[in-house]
Computed example of a mutant assay.
Amino acid sequence: MSTLILIPARMASTRLPGKPLADISGVPMIVHVARRAADAGLGRVVVATDTQSVAEAVHGHGFEAVMTRIDHESGSDRIHEALVALDPQRKVETIVNVQGDLPTIDPGIIAASLRPLEDRAVDIATLGVEIVREEEKTNSNVVKIIGSPLSATRLRALYFTRATAPWGEGPLYHHVGLYAYRRAALERFVALKPSPLERRERLEQLRALEAGMRIDAEIVQSLPLGVDTPEDLERARTILSN
């Protein structure tokens, strides 16, 4: 499959304004993400941004960037606009959406996100990691996957929630917000209106499930650090300085 990795980046973060350009070991955070994405070896890597300074920083480190509108409500809308601009001849079959605030992400798990798409019935693929810290099981900021096991490393997603679920004995899985879309699935997804459960849980991926789309999750061992706060940024600086 012809694969395009898109990294949405916007400056208007509420908890950490300007975070795509946050300095980590002398390099903007968004460039660290682009390097990790390139190391996955899947194909072309492009940053989709609404800010000229981000595009200039990305270009300055040898990566591609494409400008997108400032009024997108979600990263999915941003990457769809970027896809249309970058591939008008529709040669790209698969789009991987890597969040721009994952500077420590293991390139291997980016590559692993494509595995569920080997099943033609799967519309969207994503990642999960087993939760091992007890406090994360009840943390509403940790999104959980409720899914039906297909193998030791694969779930068919039935629901995503901020609650502690499913109930009973067995593992809980932390959802990693990285997605691999078939092109037709991305186009269908962005054409849908926000769904009731999406609005209630504040989880965009529920829109796809409510529309009958299939999402499978590959279970991986590495949980990337999402940088949302100044404390997260300091952790990322410590990790990458070592």
Score class of each variant (00 low, 15 high):
residue 1 M to I: 03
residue 5 I to P: 01
residue 11 M to H: 05
residue 11 M to W: 05
residue 12 A to V: 01
residue 16 L to I: 00
residue 16 L to T: 01
residue 22 A to G: 02
residue 23 D to P: 10
residue 23 D to G: 09
residue 24 I to K: 03
residue 27 V to M: 15
residue 28 P to K: 08
residue 29 M to G: 03
residue 30 I to E: 07
residue 30 I to S: 02
residue 34 A to L: 09
residue 38 A to E: 15
residue 40 A to S: 15
residue 42 L to H: 04
residue 44 R to W: 06
residue 44 R to T: 07
residue 46 V to H: 00
residue 46 V to R: 05
residue 47 V to T: 00
residue 51 T to K: 02
residue 54 V to K: 08
residue 54 V to P: 03
residue 58 V to D: 06
residue 58 V to Q: 06
residue 63 F to C: 06
residue 65 A to H: 12
residue 73 E to F: 08
residue 73 E to A: 10
residue 74 S to T: 15
residue 76 S to Q: 07
residue 78 R to V: 06
residue 82 A to M: 07
residue 82 A to E: 08
residue 87 D to H: 05
residue 94 T to G: 02
residue 104 T to Y: 02
residue 105 I to C: 09
residue 106 D to T: 08
residue 108 G to K: 14
residue 111 A to E: 12
residue 114 L to F: 00
residue 115 R to V: 12
residue 117 L to Y: 00
residue 119 D to V: 00
residue 120 R to Y: 01
residue 133 R to N: 07
residue 134 E to I: 01
residue 134 E to K: 04
residue 137 K to P: 04
residue 137 K to G: 12
residue 142 V to Q: 10
residue 143 V to N: 02
residue 143 V to F: 03
residue 143 V to A: 05
residue 150 L to M: 15
residue 151 S to W: 00
residue 152 A to T: 11
residue 157 A to M: 14
residue 157 A to I: 15
residue 162 R to M: 03
residue 166 P to L: 09
residue 168 G to Q: 08
residue 173 Y to V: 15
residue 175 H to P: 12
residue 183 R to W: 10
residue 185 A to L: 12
residue 185 A to N: 12
residue 185 A to M: 13
residue 186 L to C: 11
residue 187 E to T: 09
residue 193 K to G: 09
residue 197 L to H: 10
residue 198 E to Q: 15
residue 201 E to F: 09
residue 203 L to C: 10
residue 206 L to P: 09
residue 212 G to C: 10
residue 220 V to P: 06
residue 227 V to N: 03
residue 232 D to C: 12
residue 232 D to V: 09
residue 232 D to A: 09
residue 233 L to Q: 01
residue 236 A to V: 06
residue 240 L to F: 07
residue 241 S to N: 13
